[in-house]
Amino acid sequence: MKRIVWHESERVMRFVAERVGAETFKDYAAIGLEQAGELIAGVLFDNKSGANIHMHVASNETRHWMTPAYMAACFRYAFVQAACNRITGLVRADNVDAQRFDEHLGFKREGQLRAACTDGTDLIIYGMLKSECRYIEGKYHAALLADIRRAGPSR
């Protein structure tokens, strides 16, 4: 069974940092997903500025980690708890799988930062507005509430 990891921010941050090629993050919030005690996914938020926050997503490279409850937890953090109106994601131009993933989630391609990576690769800017997010209400929110009830008061 998969379990949302709410209160182990540093553990999740290290998981995400290792997979996205970052040394570390500062002033962040992180939500993980584990199965059999091992992290299989992590979402990290940083660079909150007014109504905007940056989102970084990493997984164990399988396609079977997303759950409706986890998606609701992550997007509700940004749009409800952090009270942001938009999420920004930056994706390497040579990472076509990540571009497809962001677009599948509902992010819109907004622009490109030329030669923004240390190796000269461009970064593609993706954005999602709260009004465009399908994960904060409906079946996703219901799945999150069910997951919280199932886990009990220890969270």
Rank of each mutant, 00 (worst) to 15 (best):
F15S: 04
G138L: 00
A29V: 15
Q35D: 04
A22P: 00
R3S: 13
W65L: 02
T67Y: 03
H54W: 08
R63N: 11
A115R: 12
R11K: 15
L123M: 12
E103T: 10
T62F: 00
R63I: 08
A41C: 08
R11Q: 14
T67E: 02
M1V: 09
T88G: 11
H56Q: 10
K2Q: 12
D147V: 04
E132D: 15
K26Q: 09
E137H: 03
A93M: 10
A151F: 14
L44R: 09
G50M: 07
T121N: 02
P68E: 07
M71Y: 02
E8D: 14
G152H: 11
D27W: 07
E18T: 10
K26N: 09
H141K: 12
L123S: 12
I4E: 06
K108Y: 05
A41L: 06
Q81C: 04
V16Y: 06
V57N: 01
T24G: 00
N85S: 10
A51S: 11
D119T: 11
Y126M: 07
R100P: 01
R63T: 13
L44S: 11
Q99A: 03
I4V: 01
M55Q: 07
A51G: 12
F107S: 09
R150F: 10
R63S: 07
K2P: 15
I4S: 01
G21S: 07
C74F: 15
L144W: 14
I40S: 00
